[in-house]
Design a protein around this nucleic acid. Structure first.
Lengths: 367, 367
DNA sequence: GCGGTGTATGCAAACGTTTGCATATATTGC
DNA sequence: GCAATATATGCAAACGTTTGCATACACCGC
């Protein structure tokens, strides 16, 4: 019987290893290894010889073996609630690009907004011996032991966007508060005074902060808090439509603007208003959050806060790299806060819009 | 001097290995390994003991070591031109979900539509010892040697969406021809007879096939080919707008419908028509390709062909798994062809639309 | 002529698994 | 009672790197 290792199909030639190079050149594997990793103690002549042969034989290093020996792989684990959808896809794009530049590969996992799955993801990534983990929490994560394990192992852990309620972690977040503040100020400057708000689940930091920005902006104009004007929901299209209905039906004559903590909900509101022949922005101005692609397509186009998705991904990787460098990463706890950017479009421009600034921002579909 | 292995910060306790378990239970590592992998020759009592201890000590297997020994990792490499954007993000979602179910992790790489980068991605993935590679070609890949290398190594290779012009590969593709045919037939059934077409770059199989479907549908109605009604472009928003201008200006009175091989271009056309007060669909019906999220948001909503992104990802993984199973994968060359699905919306419904079927498909935002 | 330093190379032991080839006992069939 | 089979376990060699600790030679300064 033929030995098992000899395949019937001979197309699968085994890749060549450092041992092969060493044998060919009559030197030790040490020399090969050092030549390839540009060690100082290898003579230029030897180094050249090795590199040339490696290229000629098309040598491919086995990262696995190296990682095993060094206890340090070139893999970064990323956990997101889901990958489809503009925000996370773009963050992941930023992560992959930055990681690749630093010589790291990216493993993605999806928690599907499920804590149990998230826990499993963490275990998987640890088993894969990743050099670090970047994670955006699932919607209802409230048990953090699985992350303790990561820290115990001394593996850099960076949160982004959806973070732990604690300042003892490394995190990259958007200044959601400022986003809420900016957009509300903008609505106020347009002359709106009865501004409603679609608020998301308040156990999530992002929605809480957006709401607080809204409130503080109102206060800066000496407008009192009116809880009636705040609608809490899961921010779906239907929630937006229904929320708009509620706000219009308020006893004091409704609202003249709405700041929604999400774009999908504000789209629902827009559709509702159009179906009721309410003019946007003349009768009710609208503004959302996330700068989804469709905000530049609706009629009128929707004002929204951009979340700097790509920058967030890059920043997360940068932070990870810093942690890898510093030997006492267990102590380093850094927070990176990104400034959001307001995209002003038709839906919030009362009076005569400055068409110059408008068109520039509006025509670019953020896809 | 303290030994190097002993860290100053003791927080980083080294993870426990099979050797630890073996010592603790007084058995050999073989037994541990076999118990954990459910080998038949391990007694149920021993198996239980091992599993219990493993759970108690929170043992995490080192995939790297296993992969090194077995020469087979649990990693799938995925190369896409870019990850942001609905199509690829959703495909990757499908891939990750299916791969995860089968116990595989996914490494993503972006070629950024650049052949050189794509080549690099392949090398990287081979170095990472992936069990297989799934790839959607960069826009201008025309040199295939880097893929030959993959096959030489006996590593399963599956193309999806953008594939090689050859039937000696494993591939998952959409039936673009049928998509073009379906949508054109639909326009014909609506009574349109002067149907224009926005065609993409003809060196890409997908655009060529969509165009052919369009032509054959016309022929099925005994309508002659009129090259004047076909506008070739890169399918951007501006291309769509400009293309629409051209088609309206045709000597024979313009067109009464346009099938665009991409949604972005059809959006441009819609914007142009609205600016010229041309009624859609009454005067000109529109239909696109890709079923982008915004097609359900525009007014009127846009008819489009759905590409089954998620199914494509799943199918690619299924195909990969089949290749892994079959030992002579080098010979197996399978093509999976997915059927596109036409989403009929307002932009193409002449006369009295059947509101029942319409609303069901239209309200769901494919996000 | 000796310690110091810089250059150039090799030996062999790790890293944590998996697995072919033993070994040992118990059970079964004839 | 003996071969065949099933059950249960262990030894030790792989897998392809990296690296601490040698070894060896050359040159320099004193």
């Amino acid at each position: 019987m033929a030995p098992r290792s000899k395949k019937i199909v001979d197309a699968t030639s085994s890749p060549i290893s450092m041992a092969d190079l060493a044998r060919e050149l009559g030197v030790s594997m040490t020399t090969i290894s050092r030549a390839l990793s540009d060690h100082h103690s290898i003579g230029p002549a030897t180094k050249q010889k090795v590199l040339k042969l490696a290229k000629k034989l098309n040598y491919q290093p086995n990262h696995l073996a190296a990682a095993l020996r060094k206890g340090q792989s070139k893999l970064i684990g990323v956990i997101v609630p889901y990958i489809e959808g503009r925000f996370f896809a773009t963050v992941v794009h930023g992560i992959e690009t930055a990681a690749s530049k630093a010589g790291f590969n990216v493993i993605i996992c999806q928690s599907s907004e499920d804590v149990a799955q998230e826990r499993k993801n963490v275990e998987t990534l640890l088993s894969a011996q990743v050099a670090g983990i970047l994670v955006s929490l699932s919607r209802d994560t409230n048990d953090f032991r699985h992350f303790e394990k990561v820290r115990k192992r001394g593996i850099p852990l960076v949160f982004f966007d959806r973070v732990l309620e604690s300042d003892t972690v490394n995190a990259v977040v958007l200044n959601d508060y400022d986003g809420g503040y900016q957009v509300t100020r903008h609505l106020l400057e347009q002359g709106c005074r009865r501004i409603g708000h679609f608020a998301g689940p308040q156990h999530l930091n992002i929605y809480r902060n957006r709401r607080q920005g809204y409130l503080d902006a109102l206060e800066s104009y000496n407008l009192p808090l009116d809880e009636q004007r705040i609608v809490y929901s899961d921010m779906t299209l239907e929630d937006g439509s229904e929320g708009m209905r509620q706000l219009l039906a308020l006893p004091d004559g409704g609202v003249d603007a709405v700041f929604s903590a999400g774009d999908t909900a504000v789209l629902g509101a827009l559709q509702f208003l159009k179906s009721k022949q309410v003019a946007v922005p003349q009768q009710v101005a609208l503004a959302g959050f996330s700068n989804e692609a469709f905000t530049a397509i609706t009629e009128p186009m929707l004002t929204s806060v951009d979340q700097r998705c790509e920058e967030m991904g890059q920043a997360a990787v940068r932070l990870f790299l810093e942690l890898v460098e510093s030997q006492d990463s267990a102590f380093l706890q850094r927070q990176v806060i990104l400034q959001p950017r307001l995209f002003i479009r038709e839906s919030s421009l009362q009076g005569t819009p400055s068409l110059d600034t408008l068109s520039k921002q509006a025509t670019k579909i953020p896809c």
